[in-house]
Design a protein around this nucleic acid. Structure first.
Lengths: 166, 166
DNA sequence: ATATTAAGTCAGCCTTGTTGACATTCCAAG
DNA sequence: CTTGGAATGTCAACAAGGCTGACTTAATAT
């Protein structure tokens, strides 16, 4: 069997150099990915941790702290520090649960939603431009590789995030 | 002109939901991307910053500090802290320049090369698996989108990194 | 009743980034 | 041959955002 013409799906003869290139692309691209939000966040005195919280609260309003913890994969203490400033600054509201009063359900305020919109718009603009440059065929491949790169736990969080709404 | 059948290249009608999905994929995938190296680094008492330094020194042995600074995009002080521990621990050697004695040319020692190999092998294994799962067509698309996502400066660093060797 | 869960808090630590100031060494240009 | 600027390194101080461990409070579940 000829390696170069092996049966499509099964075997990919990626050289170490090709893989290394992909690894470095991932490194540099992630910097691009975070660059715009970082600039915006800096203006408000926030960091990436705030962005992540705001993003996933917006994604499923009413989400509990525990649920957010699972998605972000950080400690309670770490998240709490971020959440506290967001609540203090009036970007996030934490409502006591109706059914279960131990729970705090998180919501963005108008102010919080405005920041989220600004951040995600910036990120979408870059993403849209990248997809446009790369061409239509690239979109599916990009997503397929990224999703295959996740750990199982991350993957299930990724899936869970869109189960509710979409 | 029909939007759905617009001339291939030009217009992509990606919904905000699709873009958001890509953004979240990027977030979760990056965690997968760094998970294996992080575990290895922790065993040696190092962090991601050490990984990055070791990676790019290995990439072009003899690289100067300034060149490494440009690639990593951090401050001299920040890099120096990392570099110092690597030199102290005998993973990196800093040789004074022959032509220009102000410069320090960085090289991995055998020990440093061993760590680099362990880290990059782990990362390649995951990358290779992701490409295998995603299929051959996905590889080109993945890279195209990532490269389009970089800032111009990052992009030129990305290109410069492989100019020498490949 | 008691155990467990959800949330929050205090204290302390680490890594990795930042600024600012400054010293040294050396190349290059006037 | 002096002087300006580049490359490097270092000290100090600070901040964000991770972490562990210990502990409290309130409320649900068994």
């Amino acid at each position: 069997m000829d390696r170069a013409h092996s049966s499509g799906e099964s075997l990919l003869f990626l050289t170490d150099a090709q893989l290394r290139r992909a690894i470095e692309a991932m490194f540099f691209a992630y910097r691009g990915f975070t660059a715009d939000p970082d600039r915006i966040l800096a203006r408000y005195g926030y960091g990436r941790a705030h962005h992540r919280a705001v993003h996933f609260i917006n994604r499923a309003p009413g989400r509990t702290v525990t649920s957010l913890l699972a998605i972000l994969g950080v400690t309670k203490q770490s998240l709490n520090r971020v959440l506290r400033t967001l609540v203090e600054d009036g970007l996030v509201e934490a409502r006591v649960g109706v059914r279960d009063k131990r729970e705090r359900h998180l919501y963005l305020t108008e102010k919080g939603a405005a920041l989220e919109a600004e951040l995600s718009e910036a990120q979408r603009v870059r993403m849209r431009a990248a997809f446009r440059d790369a061409g239509p065929q690239a979109v599916a491949g990009f997503r397929a590789v990224l999703e295959a790169m996740m750990d199982p736990e991350q993957r299930s969080q990724f899936d869970a995030v869109r189960e509710v709404v979409e």
